[in-house]
Amino acid sequence: QNEKLANELKSLLDELNVNELATGSLNTYYKRTIKISGQKAMYALKSKDFKKMSEAKYQLQKIYNEIDEA
């Protein structure tokens, strides 16, 4: 289960640069939040902690959705 979550989180991290570029014309909230979420996700992957990875995955998905809707 950890392996599956780690792969999903890696996949979301692969999209980080594209989504970060998409924040160029948006409010600074999005820029700041996506950077923080990305850092948390990288830390969670290194720690291999299921709870941290779950939270990081949720945060990344949430900010990606917010950027898409903005």
Rank of each mutant, 00 (worst) to 15 (best):
S37F: 12
L16P: 00
L60Q: 01
L12C: 06
K62N: 05
A41S: 02
N17F: 14
S47V: 08
N7F: 12
L5W: 01
Y64G: 02
V18P: 04
N27I: 05
T23G: 05
S47F: 06
L13M: 05
K52Y: 05
S11H: 10
D14N: 09
F50D: 04
K4Y: 05
K62S: 05
A56F: 02
F50P: 13
E55C: 08
Q39V: 08
K57M: 12
E69A: 13
L26K: 04
N65Q: 12
I36E: 07
Q39N: 07
L21D: 06
Q39W: 13
Q59R: 07
L12N: 00
E3C: 11
K57R: 07
K51I: 11
I67T: 02
L45F: 05
S11R: 13
A6G: 03
Y64M: 11
L9A: 00
M53K: 00
A41T: 01
E66P: 01
E8Q: 08
N7P: 02
L21R: 08
V18T: 10
E20C: 14
L13E: 01
S25G: 10
Y30V: 04
D14Y: 09
L12A: 02
K10V: 06
E8N: 02
F50R: 04
S47G: 04
Y43K: 12
I67D: 00
M42K: 12
L5T: 02
L21E: 08
K51L: 11
Q1H: 09
I34K: 00
A22P: 05
K48H: 07
Y30D: 02
I34R: 00
K46I: 12
Y64A: 05
E15K: 15
S47T: 13
K62F: 05
K57S: 04
I36A: 09
K35Y: 10
E20N: 08
E69V: 11
L26M: 09
K62D: 03
M42R: 13
T33E: 12
A70Q: 07
I63G: 01
D49W: 02
N2L: 15
E55R: 07
Y43I: 14
N65K: 14
K40D: 06
G24F: 07
K46F: 07
E20V: 15
N27Q: 07
A56K: 02
M53C: 05
F50S: 07
E20K: 11
V18W: 11
Q59S: 08
A44I: 02
E66Y: 06
Q59M: 14
T28N: 13
D68N: 14
T28M: 12
L45C: 04
A6W: 15
Q59K: 05
N2F: 15
L16M: 05
T33D: 02
A41Q: 00
G24P: 04
L60G: 00
L9D: 00
Q61N: 05
Q1V: 13
E55G: 04
N65P: 01
E20H: 07
D49Y: 02
A41N: 00
E8M: 05
K4P: 03
Y64N: 03
K4V: 09
E8V: 04
N19M: 15
G24I: 14
A70W: 09
M42F: 08
S54R: 10
Y58E: 12
D14E: 11
L60A: 01
M42Y: 12
M42C: 09
T33M: 15
N17W: 15
Y43W: 12
